[in-house]
């Protein structure tokens, strides 16, 4: 491959993985998710000392509720944008819906997962992963489905009088169960069990993956991480579409700072969530 030559000539190449639109959407999702968890989870763990501390720190239940609903509006906004993009992608035939480049789960994901477990136990090589791995697809679709459920149940409880005019009162009971459990599931998936680790904590990207913030990763990293996509693009001659010279140094520094700050905040958020959950169990 031409990598070595590039390095010698002093041109750093990067792989553009995410467009500005997708990064913008991730910023919105991230901001609203942090805000919603921060102001929502204390309600679930109301007996916890940390819940009281946080709610008082935010200025009381009313203030926390106001922040929660503001963040909910931002959350709905990004969801509408993402869904709009999805419809546009399919309608305008921007690309294949199924197959190698797609976020839609396929047979390959099942094989990859089995392959990864074999690799974990030292019984085979790490599978050649495609543009989107099975855990990334899980993250994406879990968030997509979760947003519908948590957003829908949240809106029902935001406007209980209107809800009860259309549905029986027990719908509000269901909404509370859905909202509360879905929130707990999402918080656990994002902060502890899946997303933070699979995006930033795995050995390939530890301690933080800049790609969602800057949009690009160094080409060397890309080849290692997405060997199958790289091979396919090499074969199809579409590598030029995604490989570009690296942005100027100040821009790279800016994204490193953003990534660092977000990682720090993410670490604090995960610790705080664990404390919230563990505290009532030990005290």
């Amino acid at each position: 491959m031409t990598m070595g030559t590039d390095a010698k000539e002093g041109v750093r190449l990067v792989y553009r993985r995410f467009s500005t639109f997708h990064r913008f959407n991730h910023y919105l999702a991230m901001l609203s998710f942090f805000g919603l968890v921060l102001t929502g989870i204390p309600l679930k763990f109301k007996e916890s000392y940390f819940s009281k501390l946080l709610i008082d720190g935010l200025g009381g239940v009313e203030a926390a509720g106001f922040i929660h609903r503001t963040m909910a509006v931002i959350n709905i906004l990004y969801f509408v944008l993402e869904t709009g993009y999805m419809v546009y992608y399919v309608a305008a035939r921007k690309g294949p819906i199924f197959g190698d480049d797609s976020i839609v789960p396929g047979k390959k994901d099942w094989q990859d997962m089995k392959g990864m477990f074999r690799w974990f136990f030292g019984r085979g090589p790490k599978p050649a992963l495609n543009r989107f791995t099975y855990w990334e697809k899980f993250d994406y679709w879990a968030l997509f489905a979760g947003t519908i459920l948590i957003g829908g149940s949240g809106l029902m409880m935001w406007f209980p009088e209107a809800t009860a005019r259309l549905l029986p009162g027990v719908a509000l009971n269901v909404a509370l169960v859905v909202h509360s459990n879905e929130a707990f599931l999402a918080t656990g998936v994002i902060f502890i069990f899946v997303h933070f680790f699979s995006a930033h904590g795995r050995p390939e990207s530890f301690p933080a993956d800049e790609v969602i913030f800057s949009g690009y990763i160094p080409v060397e990293h890309y080849i290692h991480e997405r060997p199958l996509e790289y091979e396919n693009r090499l074969k199809n001659g579409t590598l030029d579409q995604v490989v570009t010279p690296a942005p100027p140094a100040p821009r790279r520094r800016l994204f490193r700072w953003i990534t660092g700050l977000v990682t720090l905040f993410a670490f604090l958020a995960a610790t705080y969530t664990l404390l919230l959950i563990v505290w009532p169990l030990v005290s």
Binding site: M116, F117, W119, F120, F121, G122, W135, L185, G188, V189, I192, F193, V194, F197, S198, G201, R202, P203, F206
Partner: peptide
């Protein structure tokens, strides 16, 4: 989800 995600994560760290 928490069990599967947790096991997957721990195994990934172990291999890493």
């Amino acid at each position: 989800v928490f069990s599967f995600g947790g096991v997957h994560t721990l195994l990934y760290i172990y291999r890493g």
